Computed example of a mutant assay.
Amino acid sequence: MSGSRQIVCPGCGAVNRVPADKPAGAGKCGKCGNALFSGKPLDADAEMFARQTGRSDIPVLVDVWASWCGPCRMMAPAFEAAAAILEPDMRLIKLNSEVEQEVAGRLGIRGIPTMLLYAGGREIGRISGAMNTQQIVGWARDQLSRAPAAHKAS
């Protein structure tokens, strides 16, 4: 897998092979033609969450939130700013725990906002509580640096 990375399209969910020597940030989906990255978090339903965390070769940072949660609303602009910094090395997605209660329950979410970091199809980090942009970026990079080499982005 040294020659390419699998990146899941945020629009149609197709898995795209992006050559390692090509900038992923400029990549377009081979199926729908949409940009693979927008510099903004992706609102994900259960199916898109599963595809992004399970099929992508890049790490995925998930913000589990709800519309009624004040700290979640306060953190939303910071999470969006973090996407502009971390993409295309990491995909940022938002999972609404009100809408996707089954997924949130399966993940064992007890409080929100909670961030989960996935690499290699597995959860490698979790933290609860509102954070600012620098804290989000720092935490995600720190967790990734501690992950076993097999779970890091290529």
Rank of each mutant, 00 (worst) to 15 (best):
V64D: 00
A46T: 13
P71S: 10
A82K: 04
G33R: 07
E80H: 10
S4W: 05
I112D: 00
E98W: 07
N96P: 00
I85R: 07
G111P: 00
A46Y: 08
G111Y: 02
G121M: 05
N132I: 09
R122W: 06
Q6D: 12
A140I: 09
G108R: 03
I109G: 01
Q6H: 15
V64G: 00
I58T: 12
P71W: 07
G54I: 15
R91P: 04
N132Y: 02
K40T: 15
F37E: 01
K40F: 13
M1D: 06
K94C: 03
G30Y: 07
M131W: 06
R141K: 14
V62Y: 02
D45E: 12
A24S: 14
A66D: 01
P88L: 10
A50S: 15
C32G: 08
S145A: 13
A50R: 11
L116P: 00
A84C: 06
I85K: 10
R141M: 12
E100S: 15
M90Y: 08
C29A: 13
K31E: 11
E100G: 12
R146W: 05
S2W: 04
T114E: 00
A150T: 14
A24T: 14
A24R: 13
P88I: 10
G120V: 11
R17F: 10
M1V: 15
C72L: 05
V99L: 09
R17G: 13
L144Y: 03
M131Y: 07
A153S: 10
A119C: 14
M90L: 11
S154C: 11
Q134W: 08
N96A: 07
P10W: 10
A24P: 06
S67E: 02
A130D: 01
F37C: 06
Q143T: 15
A44T: 11
D63I: 04
D45L: 14
G125D: 05
A82L: 02
L116I: 10
E123R: 13
A50I: 13
A153M: 06
H151D: 13
A81K: 09
I112V: 01
I85G: 03
R5F: 13
E87V: 10
Q135C: 08
V64N: 01
E123Y: 07
A76P: 01
S2F: 09
A76T: 05
K22W: 14
A84Y: 05
I85F: 03
G3D: 05
G3F: 09
I7T: 12
L107I: 09
M131E: 05
P10Y: 14
A82E: 00
C72G: 04
I7V: 15
A83L: 04
E98V: 07
G54F: 15
E98F: 09
G120Y: 06
G54R: 11
C12A: 08
F49C: 12
W68V: 08
A50F: 09
N16E: 06
A78V: 05
N132G: 06
G111Q: 05
P77T: 14
V64E: 00
P71C: 07
R122Y: 07
A76S: 09
R5S: 14
A82R: 04
W65E: 00
W65A: 00
I85T: 15
I124D: 02
Y118M: 11
M48A: 11
D89C: 12
G111R: 06
Q135H: 09
I85N: 05
G138P: 02
D43F: 11
A83C: 05
G11T: 13
S97P: 01
W139I: 12
I109W: 01
V15I: 13
R146I: 09
L61S: 08
E98K: 08
